[in-house]
Design a protein around this nucleic acid. Structure first.
Lengths: 204, 204
DNA sequence: TTTGTGGCTAAGCGCTTGCTTAGCTTCCCG
DNA sequence: CGGGAAGCTAAGCAAGCGCTTAGCCACAAA
């Protein structure tokens, strides 16, 4: 709060690719507002005032409120997928699963404002935008499922219901975005706990 | 669908205590609408038309749209707590945990429309109504925590982080309300799977 | 028959919504 | 110095919002 260009709520996910700076301020204001009140309850006047400008200025940078949400949702989904992919460093399935779950969970805690928008504002997207985001979601799910499959194949995991268990593991991490607040503790510690729980769910 | 008084979406949770029938139709219409679009995106005209009446008629039975949500949320929370309590039949902690998780999970699947409203429309409640509902939520959480505590005490469970694990177990079931649709399979089968996963998360 | 009450509708009020228009300023490039 | 683009604001428009008002009708009690 010392004049640094960081909003009160938005976390440190970098939006450097958003230009010009005024557009970036809009994105950050929108994330805070969407996470706080939900898309439908957020007004364009609210977003604009968080970015320090008049309501009309929003439309210089984005053609609609929905488009602003889409931009946020798309980038957020890509960031989440990227986190998962870079956490999959190879090795034994057990180690890979722990690494994936730890990273995915910690991401949802650390970036819980964006994660909240990503996970809970899907049905405010237009059908076309939802479809685009859904392909990323399938890739996220596939990343987890692959590790479980590998673990079953080499005998280190026992998973009677593969799709159901995949969904459960994802579910555990995703739900963090619903309840997490900073006073709930360190994101990395939570990641380790959840990695442990997920591993125990599947180990042979 | 043979003229029986059941809406297209609302599940079989009985709202017999809501009188007169017109008020019950409003509640069922509101549940469907809130679950489908969210509280903020739902109009009183939409709710009223689902109940087959004019917008003004809603205010004969409820003083505001928020009050309608509160009535639904309160009853839904109580129903969820009741499910948990009646599933806690005693015996070994492992059996109790499995029974609780199976029942709680199956409830969220079977009644996923109401569950969605219960779990994801909390911040549309007034502060006073939210506080009232929060006490029920604490009771739900305490019910799970007690079983875990008992299991740790008799040595059948190994739980390094009790509050974190309690939250995780609850989280798993609650998140079902986010993604479940009837084509995802039988609620009871899902309950069994989740009981299994939860048990493996904590067993010594 | 009168009176009152519960349940409803047509109409509409005051306000807010997402978004548009018209026009202003600033700055870059020739 | 001239001109156009980029970025912004004040004002406002049409539509839709939650909710209210006034009054109608069916029916039960007196």
């Amino acid at each position: 709060m010392h004049g640094v260009n960081v909003s009160a709520v938005t976390d440190s996910l970098d939006w450097d690719h958003v230009e010009p700076p005024a557009a970036r301020r809009l994105v950050q204001g929108a994330i805070d507002a969407f996470a706080e009140r939900g898309f439908q309850a957020t007004t364009t006047r609210d977003i604009a005032s968080r970015a320090g400008m008049s309501p009309a200025a929003l439309y210089v940078h984005y053609p609609s409120k929905e488009r602003l949400l889409f931009e946020i949702s798309l980038y957020g989904h890509n960031a989440a997928l990227e986190i998962l992919r870079s956490a999959d460093t190879g090795g034994a399935p057990a180690d890979r699963l722990r690494s994936l779950v730890a990273a995915f969970t910690a991401w949802h805690a650390r970036h819980h404002t964006i994660a909240h928008v990503v996970q809970y504002e899907l049905n405010a997207l237009s059908p076309e935008h939802l479809a685009e985001v859904a392909t990323i979601r399938r890739a996220i799910s596939a990343q987890i499922e692959q590790v479980l499959t590998d673990g079953v194949q080499d005998g280190s995991f026992a998973v009677p219901d593969l799709p159901g268990t995949t969904l459960a593991v994802l579910s555990l991490s995703i739900d963090v975005a619903r309840w997490y607040t900073p006073h709930r503790g360190d994101p990395d510690a939570l990641g380790k706990l959840y990695a442990d729980l997920a591993h125990r769910m599947v180990q042979a």
